[in-house]
């Protein structure tokens, strides 16, 4: 009877896959199952740590579950076996305490190295201050007199309203596009100073390899050095209220000279916008203070 139930289970799985292929949007991706390698030295180290620990667990899993399923297959009453009587072995207990300990130490060494490197924000060539708001991000290029706010783009915002009738798949980069990107140079050690104005947020771009909490009243530091020009998309990772899911991050990494050009343009043209945003900032902190 059990076999029959299992076969029905398989049939059900087939039905699910069938249903999926009919209704899922074209842009979705069943192959998207692993962490990104990212575009920085640290993100690659983190990816390697992730794959190492994953493979270790796979090997342990194959051994333990192998023994378990072999036992389930062989040591069943229906095969007429008589149960053994043994119930402990100090030697075996010591072995399976010490071996995992060894594996853990071997794993802790590279993890420690990566962690210490990630923590070192010294010798940064430039600094960007990131401020989390409910529900958008503010960026300030320190000592450059450039600052702006970065919000969910209008198309996504329209489509994401309850019952909007707009197909998310029809929107370009639905929920991962902003009105104004954070532009940064490649091959430059960039220090981020991350804080928040209202509640806790978390600034996360998977391609950079880390996320860091943005905490009101405190400044957290992190750094990156991006290898390749490109557009890297991330999102807020700490529950921050109603629109937590709607405050994406877009980082555009460009060549150094291109970046200088862009920065110069921002200084001149967007002074008004910058003032507006700083007004808004002080408004928010007034609100906070009054609470």
């Amino acid at each position: 009877m059990r076999k029959m139930t299992a076969r029905r289970g398989l049939g059900l799985a087939g039905l699910i896959v069938g249903l999926m292929s009919v209704v899922s949007p074209a842009a979705a991706d069943l192959g998207l199952i692993n962490m990104t390698r990212g575009v920085t030295e640290s993100s690659r180290q983190i990816y390697d740590l992730h794959m190492t620990i994953f493979l270790i667990t796979v090997v342990i899993g194959v051994l333990v579950f192998g023994a378990m399923f072999y036992s389930i297959y062989r040591h069943r009453k229906s095969r007429g076996v008589k149960p053994a009587k043994f119930h402990h072995s100090t030697a075996v207990e010591i072995v399976w305490t010490v071996i995992p300990l060894g594996i853990l130490v071997a794993m802790a060494v590279p993890a420690t190295q990566t962690l210490i490197e990630l923590d070192d924000t010294s010798d940064a060539e430039m600094t960007v201050k990131v401020t989390g708001y409910q529900w958008f991000w503010g960026y300030e290029y320190m000592d450059e007199d450039v600052q702006f706010l970065s919000r969910l783009d209008v198309d996504s915002d329209r489509a994401r309203q309850l019952g909007s009738g707009v197909q998310p798949a029809s929107v370009d980069n639905y929920l991962q596009n902003v009105d104004k990107r954070l532009v940064v140079p490649v091959d430059t050690k960039i220090r981020f100073q991350i804080t928040a104005a209202d509640v806790i947020h978390s600034w996360w771009v998977p391609d950079l390899g880390w996320k860091k909490d943005a905490i009101p009243g405190f400044v957290n530091e992190a750094w990156t050095r991006i290898d390749e020009p490109g557009i890297y998309r991330g999102r807020c990772a700490e529950l921050c209220g109603r629109d937590h899911g709607f405050m994406p991050i877009v980082v555009e990494a460009v060549e150094k000279d291109e970046f200088e050009e862009w920065l110069a343009g921002q200084r001149g043209g967007d002074a008004a916008a910058a003032t507006a945003s700083s007004n808004e900032q002080s408004e928010v902190s007034d609100q906070l203070a009054s609470r």
Binding site: M20, V23, S24, P25, A27, A28, D29, L30, L32, I33, N34, M35, T36, R160, P168, A169, N173, Y174, L175, Q176, W204, P206, G234, R235, C236, A237, L239, H244, G245, F246
Partner: peptide, 20 residues
Amino acid sequence: LAGMPRRIPDYSVQFADWNM
């Protein structure tokens, strides 16, 4: 692993298949 945060009511389309 592909980058979907928890506690969000809506997500970008690359996450659609596995969510379904």
